[in-house]
Design a protein around this nucleic acid. Structure first.
Lengths: 224, 224
DNA sequence: TGCCCTTCAGTGACGATGTCACCAAAGGGA
DNA sequence: TCCCTTTGGTGACATCGTCACTGAAGGGCA
């Protein structure tokens, strides 16, 4: 194990202050794993056995309804933990959500037993875990509020800005954007056509170039 | 403290097997409180300071958007815990949800420090807490799926059956039902008129008598 | 008892969103 | 080059959300 992976703990702000003994236990009790893009990390047919702390890459957590429609619940970025899987570890009932590696990822995998031990012995670790829960649950509340009350044009403008890289380019099909927002492709196509008409974006097959991010930002900040 | 309140722990299936010492600590470190109907237990302006274990009554957890529209996220019933407030205790950021006593309630209140201590020292208690998290999070996933993908008539039929007492009577205004489902009063009024036309219900001011629960049940079981 | 006032429910019109059926264009592979 | 899959476009229509307004029900009070 090289220095880089030994020091992965420092990438997590909540863990930097971990007591030395606990820190060693965390390193010795976990392993650094690599997973390739599109790997299903957990899902209805795949119970998670580890708590993942993401060192690089992103994980997309989404839900698929019986009718086949999808919605993205949240994303886990590097430096964050896939903490809701700990709830899933206990498997109160079937988890209808699934987590997918959106890129190639590297993560520290903590087995259930070590997780348990650390929660019991370290205040700092416990604080880290509950704080991560808090963030996720708050995210879910925001998703509910958005779906229930927000207009689709505002949600789409917001999502485009979120997904755009530094080059103001969103690489995604209309269908994928529809799944992000839990709506139908046609709705996305219509909205994008309107954005295009206003010269806010420039569409081409499978990607959208943002031309006027300030206009999109203004729309996404609209309070209805 | 009388026998009834000393033995409240037995009302929680997850706590019945608690180790004797832990059990004593839980009883001595917490207090049984009574709160009257409509008390705001936690909310944007009121951080929770205790984990509540509900002995009797129900708590409604809802969210209010900036535009004033409401949606009910979930309910906590007797024998369950208001566990998401533990995440709120750490207050990652502002909690936009609020918890309201829907009836007069009696609950065991566990201070943060005791909660922390118990999570650290008892496997059983820790299991209880994470299991409760799991249930709540699963509930939130179901709410998201419903809002995003389910037809309103199906959701309303389902909600009427949930809210009806043994006498098949739902005491609620159209406005309150709209808040339950995160929609507008007019939508509820129109749906109820349709249910009435089919003789499934009988409306009067502020209450709805269910006439044909099997028809409502059949509708609510519809898979789209 | 009669009046007032608040709350609750009904309604039409219309815009926004979701669904369905179908078509057309783009691009990759044989 | 030709197919075939993926992607995106479109009209028609149903459902849902919003707005403005009306009227009915019931409680309080003189």
């Amino acid at each position: 194990m090289n220095t880089a992976t030994e020091n992965w703990i420092d990438r997590f702000t909540g863990l930097m202050k971990l007591e030395a003994g606990i820190r060693d236990r965390l390193v010795s009790g976990s392993s650094v794993v690599s997973l390739s893009k599109d790997t299903v990390i957990f899902g209805p047919d795949k119970k998670p056995e580890y708590l993942l702390l993401l060192l690089s890459g992103t994980v997309r957590v989404q839900q698929i309804s019986e009718s086949g429609r999808e919605i993205v619940l949240y994303r886990v970025y590097a430096g964050e933990s896939c903490v809701l899987t700990t709830a899933c570890l206990l498997a109160y009932e079937d988890y209808s959500a699934e987590g997918i590696a959106e890129t190639d990822i590297v993560a520290a995998a903590i087995p259930r037993s070590v997780f348990d031990e650390l929660v019991a012995t370290s205040d700092t670790f416990r604080q880290f875990v509950f704080s991560a829960y808090s963030k996720r649950i708050t995210d879910l509340f925001l998703v509910i509020e958005e779906i229930a009350f927000q207009r689709m044009d505002i949600r789409l403008a917001d999502k485009l800005l979120q997904l755009a890289g530094d080059d103001d380019l969103v690489v995604s099909t209309h269908q994928q954007l529809a799944a992000e927002l839990g709506t139908a492709r046609e709705v996305i196509s219509r909205q994008l056509r309107e954005f295009q008409r206003r010269n806010w974006i420039n569409q081409s097959r499978g990607q959208i170039a943002l031309q006027d991010t300030s206009a999109l930002k203004k729309l996404s900040d609209t309070i209805v």
